[in-house]
């Protein structure tokens, strides 16, 4: 069976490479861009920047709390620090440092978090953070971005270098379809309607945007026309785009590689409940930790793939 996909790909790549390449380009554009990493330079793809700009790159060793504080200090001196580590160590481990020294202090620090979510794979639940978006979006003044593929991650990385203020940028480890254009303009806080539809809206973020694209084609085969909206910015959330779509379709699905509790779906529910109460079904991890496995196996077991988005869309439709 071959699906009639509205977006296709010829190449797969990890989103962290999109970050690494964007980071290098941002460094070439702006001498104030500096980097820090807590002993994961290879994993974060920060090596090219380090090689080209050794005086603007700081290895902190395995000491994430210190890395966040140093970043805040560099920002005071007018630098634009990109601090990279795994999403788990970039959030939960250093929440108080981010809260006090970055968010509350209004520091222009970019927290760059790789290996987020289940698709980290075999390393298992210790590293598969599924709560990071929730923690970060709760912080006042924090911008939270979760791009969907290599190209979007690269574009987002360049965009946050231009933006003044604290940002949490989340990306991942697995090789993933590159289905968005290389020359895209990344607008922070602006949702991207990728596919027009009339029956149900799928709001997806991160890796699950691809699953939403696949789900749309599967639904279309059954005569259901889903609208697919790429919510790369969780905060500030594009409320206007959400409301405009749901006013048309009448129901929605949220899809994210994150706990349902506190994730994108929660944010969408808040918007809908205040302005346009409508059926909303959630595709996300349901109050559980992950485990070891391949990314594909994990997305299937925890109910985060295209098949699950299709099922959720049908549940939402049935509640209209």
């Amino acid at each position: 069976m071959s699906l009639d996909l509205k977006f296709t790909y010829t190449e797969k790549k990890d989103t962290r490479s999109g970050f690494g390449d964007g980071f290098l380009e941002a460094g070439r554009k702006n001498p104030n861009v500096v980097g820090l990493c807590a002993d994961l330079i290879g994993s974060l793809k920060m090596g090219d920047f380090q090689k080209e700009f050794p005086d603007r790159f700081f290895q902190t060793g395995i000491a994430e709390a210190n890395m966040i504080g140093i970043s805040a200090g560099l920002a005071i001196g007018g630098k634009i620090p990109f601090a990279g580590t795994f999403a788990n160590f970039a959030t939960g481990r250093v929440y108080d440092q981010i809260r006090q020294s970055v968010a509350y202090s209004d520091k222009n620090v970019k927290i760059c978090a790789s290996h987020a979510g289940l698709t980290l794979g075999e390393d298992g639940a210790t590293h598969q953070i599924l709560e990071d978006l929730g923690m970060m979006k709760m912080l006042p003044h924090m911008t939270v971005i979760n791009p969907c593929d290599y190209n979007q991650t690269k574009a987002a990385t360049l965009a946050i270098a231009e933006y003044e203020g604290p940002v949490y940028l989340r990306f991942g480890r697995p090789s993933w379809p590159i289905f968005t254009p290389a020359d895209q303009k990344f607008e922070i806080g602006k949702a991207w309607k990728m596919i027009d539809g009339k029956d149900v809206t799928i709001f997806a973020t991160g890796h699950l945007v691809w699953e939403a694209v696949v789900a749309e084609a599967m639904l279309r085969e059954e005569g259901i026309h889903a609208e697919v909206i790429n919510i790369h910015t969780i905060k500030p959330l594009d409320e206007a785009a959400i409301l405009e779509s749901v006013k048309k379709t009448g129901c929605a699905v949220s899809a994210e590689e994150h706990q349902i509790n506190g994730g994108l779906g929660d944010s969408i529910a808040q918007v809908l409940s205040r302005h346009h109460p409508s059926p909303l079904e959630y595709v996300g991890v349901n109050d559980s930790f992950g485990e070891s496995g391949t990314p594909t196996e994990l997305l299937e077991k925890y109910g985060l793939n295209a098949e699950n988005i299709v099922k959720a869309a049908k549940r939402a439709l049935a509640r209209k």
């Binding site: 700081f58 709390a65 210190n66 890395m67 966040i68 504080g69 140093i70 970043s71 805040a72 200090g73 560099l74 920002a75 005071i76 001196g77 007018g78 630098k79 620090p81 440092q97 020294s101």
Partner: peptide
């Protein structure tokens, strides 16, 4: 930590 960052800047 913050002071270190400011010093390195």
């Amino acid at each position: 930590s913050v002071a270190l960052g400011a010093a390195q800047a």
